[in-house]
Computed example of a mutant assay.
Amino acid sequence: MKRSLMHLFALPLLCGAALTHAASTVELTVSGLITPMACTPVFSGGGVIDFGKISRQDLNLTNGTRLPLKYLTLTVSCNAPGRFVLLMRDNRDGTAHVDSEIYYGLGLDNGGNKLGVYSLSFDPRQTVVDDLAVVYGTESTTGGVAWRTSNSNPINIGSRSLLGFTELEGSTAGPSAIKNLTSTVTLEAVINARQNLDLSAETRLDGSATLEVVYL
């Protein structure tokens, strides 16, 4: 009985194979472009921000506590003018208590609770690009397919959005070709509500992120 069933199920498969020829191979294409352009990003102070010691009693019980703003300078030096954007990757992914691509985590306390978040903001008005008199910011949330209309408003760098600069105001063409860029970056940190944290022992803020130059 089992042998008969096996033959019955096999017949349609054999008939189908005789009528159509299914492809037994598939092609893979690997492409890319190697560019002679090379850019080096550098944060002032080695990219280290230290808030020092923060008293437990200075933290809000039920709401987040904003720490004083910190500032650092980013320089991007390229061997030739070219179009590039900036992107940030959180090295403490999963520790931010606010779910947004512009917030990066400050690590966990001794009980595994999320300590807080920080963000980095770029202000075109505090950004110098080559010999341009004025610079405008733009960004893309579509991987460079479409660009936000360029303007002089500050932009928070995100982990999934491309951030660039151009000399054209009101443009949707994306970043301009740049050789040297210097920008004053504002860092804002917020500690989670005290009631959500285990602060029975000294707890170290442990934020870490990598800023990447992406060539277009």
Rank of each mutant, 00 (worst) to 15 (best):
L205N: 12
T210W: 03
L13Y: 03
L163I: 10
L108C: 08
G105C: 00
I157V: 14
F43R: 05
L132M: 13
L181E: 09
T141Q: 12
F165N: 07
L86H: 00
G45Q: 04
G174D: 00
C39G: 08
P36S: 12
I34S: 13
P154Y: 00
A201E: 06
E167L: 10
N151R: 08
I49N: 04
S208L: 08
N60Q: 14
E139M: 12
D123A: 06
G158E: 01
G144N: 13
L86M: 01
N180V: 11
V190I: 15
A189S: 06
G64A: 03
N151F: 02
G207A: 03
A201G: 04
L168E: 14
L106C: 02
S159M: 01
L28Q: 11
T73S: 13
A201C: 02
V145H: 12
V98A: 14
N113W: 00
N180G: 03
T186S: 15
T62E: 13
N79A: 00
T166P: 12
V26C: 02
G32Y: 12
D123I: 02
P12M: 03
S119E: 11
S4W: 14
E139D: 13
G105W: 02
L205C: 03
F165E: 09
V128M: 10
L86N: 01
R204D: 08
N196H: 11
L5V: 14
V117Q: 05
S171W: 02
T166W: 07
T65P: 01
R3Q: 13
L8S: 09
H7T: 14
C15G: 04
S161D: 12
V213M: 04
N63W: 11
D198H: 05
V190N: 06
R92F: 00
I102R: 02
V214K: 02
C78D: 10
N196E: 10
R160A: 13
T25P: 01
L59A: 04
S100H: 11
V128Y: 05
N153R: 14
F43L: 08
Y103L: 05
F84H: 03
V145E: 14
G32N: 06
C15I: 15
K70T: 00
S77M: 05
D99E: 13
R204I: 01
V85H: 02
A23S: 14
P124A: 05
K2T: 13
A189H: 05
G107C: 11
F43C: 09
R160L: 12
R125A: 14
K70S: 01
V30Q: 04
G111P: 10
G164M: 07
A189F: 01
L28E: 04
L74C: 09
A10Y: 06
N180K: 07
L33V: 13
G137I: 06
N180P: 03
G137V: 09
S121A: 13
A193W: 05
A17E: 00
Y118E: 09
Y118H: 08
R89Q: 14
L187V: 15
R125M: 14
V145C: 05
F51H: 15
T142V: 02
T73N: 11
P68T: 01
T127C: 00
V213P: 01
V85G: 06
